[in-house]
């Protein structure tokens, strides 16, 4: 224990990442990135998120093999948890459990880039400012793009609205149609309970120019690092099969079709969340793992 801790603080982060995940480092070490991804910053922060992923939230991932090993793809998910840790958890699953570890480039709202310290960190860990041009460029480079079509509204859901998906903004379908990229829906359970938001103080948020100002059990009350400690909820991530849209790129301007496809994917994610919630016994323990894994049998159904 002590030896591993000292190694954590003394070893060069890049060397450690290269030891733990050689395929990932090999893939990205030589490549210069126009959006400012830095393998070193990534390597420095990786153990922290790895700890959250493996030991704290004990994330259970299903269907990670549905993400293609190469080529572009758009990941679409439900957003949750005041700090958007859900994206980080999917990235961890992708780098740790996939046969071909890849980074996921999330499209991030402008607000993160208005904070001087945070902006660089967000860029260096691989996130990209959310514009249509950036997204197209990423897909041309053959990257995995992560989009949360609920936007920042989805992150600031109060606790009673947990796992109720807001209506998806249909931009991601337009992007997928125009570029001919497969869409990969991802349902994440657990993120909405790590910070139970009691209420959202809008006037304070407006004053501080924040997207929302949550009040949680710990948030404005405890001193700085303590107020950000999440509850140890068990997470479940379900990656669906990629959806290849069989439409010509001109259909991207067909508003009705785009909206319908966006709704279909939204409903699929909501349906999956409902199913996982029904199967879960209690949110700190998650229930027996084998029960969660079998998808065929539903409890309290017809005898």
């Amino acid at each position: 224990m002590k030896a591993s801790l000292t190694r954590l603080f003394t070893e060069d982060p890049l060397a450690r990442l290269a030891r733990g995940n050689p395929a990932f480092v090999k893939r990205y070490e030589s490549e210069p990135d126009p959006f400012g991804f830095s393998l070193e910053t990534y390597a420095r922060w990786e153990p922290f998120f790895r700890f959250l992923f493996e030991d704290y939230f004990k994330v259970e991932v299903r269907g990670i093999e549905n993400i293609p090993a190469d080529g572009p793809g758009i990941l679409v998910g439900n957003h949750s948890g005041l700090l958007p840790l859900d994206g980080a958890m999917i990235s961890m699953a992708m780098t740790g459990q996939h046969r071909a570890p890849r980074r996921i480039r999330y499209l991030v709202t402008d607000w993160f880039f208005s904070l001087p310290g945070l902006a660089d960190w967000v860029k260096e860990t691989g996130q990209v400012r959310a514009t249509l041009d950036n997204a197209r460029k990423l897909l041309e480079m053959g990257e995995l793009v992560g989009i949360y079509p609920e936007g920042i509204r989805g992150v600031g859901k109060p606790f009673r609205e947990r796992y109720r998906v807001l209506d998806f903004h249909p931009g991601f379908v337009q992007l997928a149609l125009a570029t001919g990229t497969p869409l990969i829906p991802v349902a994440t359970l657990g993120g909405d309970e790590i910070y139970p938001e009691l209420t959202n103080l809008k006037s304070v948020a407006n004053f501080l120019k924040m997207p929302f100002f949550p009040v949680t059990l710990t948030f404005p009350w405890l001193p700085f690092p303590l107020m950000l400690i999440p509850l140890p909820v068990r997470w479940m991530i379900h990656v669906h099969k990629p959806i290849k849209l069989d439409y010509p790129p001109e259909k991207a301007s067909d508003r009705k079709l785009v909206l319908k496809l966006a709704r279909e994917i939204q409903y699929e994610i909501q349906d999956d969340l409902n199913k996982m919630l029904r199967r879960r016994r209690f949110f700190f323990t998650g229930g027996a793992a084998e029960k969660l894994l079998d998808t065929e049998k539903e409890p309290n159904n017809n005898p």
Binding site: E161, R164, V165, Q266, Y267
Partner: peptide, 23 residues
């Protein structure tokens, strides 16, 4: 199959909307 899934989603989305309105 698709219609039943879509109907289910429409109803769930409408319930979510109504609940949000109420809250």
């Amino acid at each position: 199959m698709r219609q039943s899934q879509f109907a289910e989603g429409e109803i769930q989305a409408e319930l979510n909307r109504l609940l949000r309105q109420q809250w």
